[in-house]
Design a protein around this nucleic acid. Structure first.
Lengths: 156, 156
DNA sequence: TGGTATAGCATGGGATTTTATGGGAATCAA
DNA sequence: TTGATTCCCATAAAATCCCATGCTATACCA
């Protein structure tokens, strides 16, 4: 039994004519611990798809219930957006999922999909968009390096 | 039961035609306490590979979740950078891992790999790069020696 | 003390399994 | 019926397993 469940690595897979994509086997191994489906929704901030285990959304729901901002407009909007958009995507016996038109369009994905690990969740990008995003992040982090050290608690 | 889990020592092993390297047995003994795989990623600052137990990244994920907002840009960037690059490397029954092309290229490793202990993590260098790095570190220490003496309070 | 047995380790190569991917048949819904 | 989704099988490439070998360090014994 695995102790940790982190989505990692960056993997590019093909989207076939029917719209099917293989979920990377590492991801599948994690998901299989608890179910045979992932939850996906359009990223609120980027032209990409986000995916995670249903557990994470459950935790998000709990966190929001427990927060002081229970009645805030902002929380309301966020939960509407996330839960209104999210949907379960089961994978078949060969490990493929079929993403909806809505998701693919939001992420500009046509024939290839890039899976990017983010720890408890992951993202799915088009190769072109991911290339741009990765460059932006590297530049950004390089600029703010000191704060990274603090968060990390490790200097090297 | 072992009490401490520190990667130590410097060991050079061969990378075979398939890209396999033996993880030093001392390292393996540490890893085996909790699993049979390590996590590796490209060092942000040096031309080498870094490795650690998944626990360390899991802790990082938790820290991020607790200190940054779920939807914040900063959290987004950091998780992409860290988890997008990291990957699990399980070792087989003879104790070998198979490093990816991406990692080998970043560290300029071809047929030999130098494992350098760093406590909770370790680094993997090409012999040439490690030679240079070691020289640099020695020079650095020599340069700072006076202040080191002062701190020590002992002149000889 | 010196020589030898032994266990653990690094390494090589072949066999086996997994994975990503394509396509056809079966099933379902409008 | 038609269009789409699901299931099943096929294949090539890649990853993983497994066994064999030689080396080294340590233990053991005379």
């Amino acid at each position: 039994m695995r102790k940790t469940f982190l989505f990692m690595d960056t993997i590019i897979n093909k989207v076939d004519a029917k719209g099917r994509v293989s979920l990377p086997s590492d991801y599948r191994a994690i998901v299989k611990e608890s179910s045979s489906e992932i939850v996906c929704y359009r990223s609120l901030t980027s032209p990409c798809i986000e995916g995670c285990l249903e557990d994470l959304l459950d935790k998000l729901a709990s966190d929001m219930e427990n927060s002081l901002d229970f009645f805030s407009q902002e929380q309301d909007d966020l939960t509407n957006l996330v839960f209104g958009d999210a949907k379960r995507y089961p994978f078949d016996s060969t490990g493929r999922i079929m993403l909806s038109e809505k998701l693919l369009k939001h992420a500009n994905i046509t024939d290839s999909a890039v899976f990017v690990g983010k720890g408890r969740k992951f993202q799915i990008w088009s190769p072109q968009n991911w290339e741009k995003e990765e460059a932006r992040i590297r530049a950004e982090v390089l600029k703010n390096r000191p704060s990274l050290r603090n968060t990390n608690g490790d200097n090297k």
